[in-house]
């Protein structure tokens, strides 16, 4: 949670400086962010590739458990897509791309802002932050009415880190292992899915 707050603070400070025009022109009109994104993607890849334990879990128990992230992927895209009916300024494709963030707001919003538009990037940031908050706040309710796996579904990619403690508490240890697995698969999937959807 502390990390999430620091990340949001960095965005907020940037936003404030941008709005009130405190920065020299060179910082605003540049293409550094594209290169920085590539660096970020490379580093994200390293952290994924080095996560040996989870890859092994995927190899050993993957087949049946893959239904979990698969259902969450389909549900997130379809659910966000369906909501776009009520949002005239957001197309089905854009809504699905925001849904494909699976709660991984930092990376999904940065990619969307870079390859699509700042506005949709901000939407993705706020939407995926709220997905994390919804999970943290409503997990007890979800588990009670929709079963133990609903917390994993709601958490999406965050089920492997920020929302894992609350999932473990209310859904139990056995589900926590599934959460770790599903969250990991969705974390790996996020950058690919977002990019593919927006280029579709």
């Amino acid at each position: 949670m502390k990390d999430s707050l620091i990340i949001i603070a960095f965005f907020a400070v940037g936003l404030f400086l941008g709005i009130y025009d405190f920065l020299p022109e060179i910082m605003i009109n540049n293409s550094y962010s594209t290169y920085a994104l590539y660096l970020l993607l490379f580093l994200v890849g390293i952290s994924m590739g080095a996560d040996r334990k989870t890859w092994l879990l995927l190899k050993n128990k993957g087949k049946q458990l893959l239904f979990v992230p698969a259902a969450i992927t389909a549900g997130s895209l379809a659910g966000a897509g369906a909501v776009s009916v009520f949002l005239p300024e957001i197309s089905l494709k854009e809504a699905a791309a925001v849904g494909a963030g699976f709660g991984y707001y930092s990376l999904s919003s940065i990619i969307i802002a870079e390859i699509h538009s700042d506005l949709l990037g901000v939407t993705a940031l706020l939407s995926n932050i709220s997905r994390e908050i919804i999970t943290l706040a409503l997990t007890p309710f979800f588990v009670k009415y929709f079963g133990p796996l609903s917390s994993v579904a709601s958490g999406g990619a965050t089920a492997m880190d920020t929302t894992l403690p609350v999932i473990a508490k209310f859904s139990g240890k056995e589900i926590a292992a599934v959460a770790l697995f599903s969250g990991f698969v969705l974390t790996v999937l996020t950058p690919f899915a977002v990019t593919l959807i927006l280029n579709f």
Binding site: A71, A82, G99, S127, F146, G156
Partner: peptide, 29 residues
């Protein structure tokens, strides 16, 4: 407006995921 759209989109994504995870839970466990 962006904040409103964002919350609606995440609500949709969470609802969709939960709806589809229910049969998966039955299948696996």
């Amino acid at each position: 407006k962006t904040g409103f759209s964002a919350i609606l989109l995440s609500t949709g994504a969470v609802a969709g995921s939960i709806i589809l995870i229910i049969p998966v839970y039955k299948l696996i466990f």
